[in-house]
Amino acid sequence: MKINPEHVVSLTYDLYVDNNGEESLVESATQEQPLTFLYGAGQMLPKFEENLSEHSTGDTYEFRLSAEDAYGEYDEEAVANLPKEMFSGTEVPEIGAVIPLQDNNGNRFRGQVVSIAEDGVIVDLNHPMAGQELHFKGTVLNVRPATAEELAHGHAHGPDGHHHHE
């Protein structure tokens, strides 16, 4: 079956990024733990879906997304100095730690601690893969029409359409 909007797609992928001229594998989805998503529901990068649009069950694929089409260019401005008081009552995070944050509008996001100053914690708010070209390789395992419930919820309920509660 061909991938179309309102279809649930299950696929494997290996995601590579350029690491000083060498490609390194940063993420994978396997046959045992595939990536399953509702195609066209806006959960995936638009260009990721666009590159899959001509594929069907059983197809292998390989494509690259520019930084612009993936997580955007690295933004030097997206580095914040958070006052140490924000961490009162908790330990100050270590350099390299990824911490959950919330802006004044209640939007949640993550930042990576890049350095710790006397009065503050410097956090990089860029996506960890900002500025990187992404290289995907994988196989389309399954394509099926979404169920009415999945369409109502706006997301896939697993490879077979059943929602499993842990």
Rank of each mutant, 00 (worst) to 15 (best):
P34Q: 08
T36V: 15
T36E: 06
T36Q: 05
L38K: 03
Y39V: 11
Y39S: 14
G42E: 04
Q43F: 08
Q43H: 13
L45E: 04
L45W: 04
P46Q: 13
P46V: 14
P46E: 12
P46M: 13
P46Y: 10
K47C: 01
F48C: 08
E49T: 05
E49V: 10
E49H: 07
E50F: 11
E50Y: 08
N51V: 07
N51S: 15
L52M: 09
L52G: 02
E54Y: 07
S56Q: 08
T57Y: 03
G58W: 01
T60H: 08
Y61T: 03
R64H: 05
L65D: 09
S66L: 12
A67D: 11
Y71V: 06
Y71Q: 01
G72E: 06
E73K: 13
E73Q: 14
Y74Q: 06
Y74L: 13
Y74K: 15
E77C: 11
A78Q: 10
A78D: 12
V79R: 03
N81M: 11
N81K: 09
N81G: 13
L82S: 04
E85T: 14
E85P: 01
F87I: 12
F87M: 13
F87L: 12
S88Y: 06
S88T: 13
G89F: 13
T90D: 09
T90C: 07
P93Y: 00
P93A: 00
E94T: 03
I95M: 01
I95P: 01
I95V: 15
G96M: 02
A97H: 04
A97N: 04
A97Y: 01
V98G: 03
V98C: 02
V98K: 06
I99F: 00
I99T: 04
I99Y: 03
P100D: 10
L101M: 15
L101F: 10
L101H: 06
Q102D: 00
D103H: 07
D103S: 07
N104L: 15
G106N: 07
G106I: 11
R108H: 12
R108F: 15
F109M: 13
F109I: 12
R110L: 12
R110Y: 14
G111F: 08
G111P: 06
Q112W: 01
Q112G: 00
S115K: 00
